[in-house]
Amino acid sequence: MKTFGGSALMLDRNDINTDEIIPAKYLTENSKPALKPFILEDLKLDGFNPATDINNKGVIVTRNNFGCGSSREHAVWVFEVNEINVVIAESFARIFRQNMFNCGMPAIELKKEEINDIFTLSGPVEIAVDPEKNTLTAKGDRELTFSFDLNPFDRDLVLAGGWLAYADKKY
């Protein structure tokens, strides 16, 4: 069973769109690894510097309506090739959320207060996700544990390694 988690990259803003995650001008790349350096290049967030803040991160923690805008799956792939394997948010835009599960990566929704709690942790934050037990722990200066809802079908996609593998077997 694949494990999910890693160091958290905190993006404290609502409505981060897929143009900010990977600008359209890079959609001419025909390989996923080529997207790597352009992650979050156009993100409008005070104090955020993609050149230094991305290193060795495995999880993104953010607010409301993450991944809105364009349908580009490149927004998931650019995380994948940067070894980010989970996004935790208060809510997601539909297509982005589906793209995450389609790539076999969990998009986890927590309540507003729970997201707030993670943002109050100080020091580097480490997150570990258990998609079978529907729990995650966030460890900074203290340790927090949360349970989350994962739609059973979405979990099946994660376990199958994505929608293509699932659909190819089933349909």
Partner: peptide
């Protein structure tokens, strides 16, 4: 939809 959905759509 994204690319994976598109692939499955094209294929299935």
């Amino acid at each position: 939809i994204g690319t994976t959905d598109l692939e499955v759509g094209i294929l299935k």
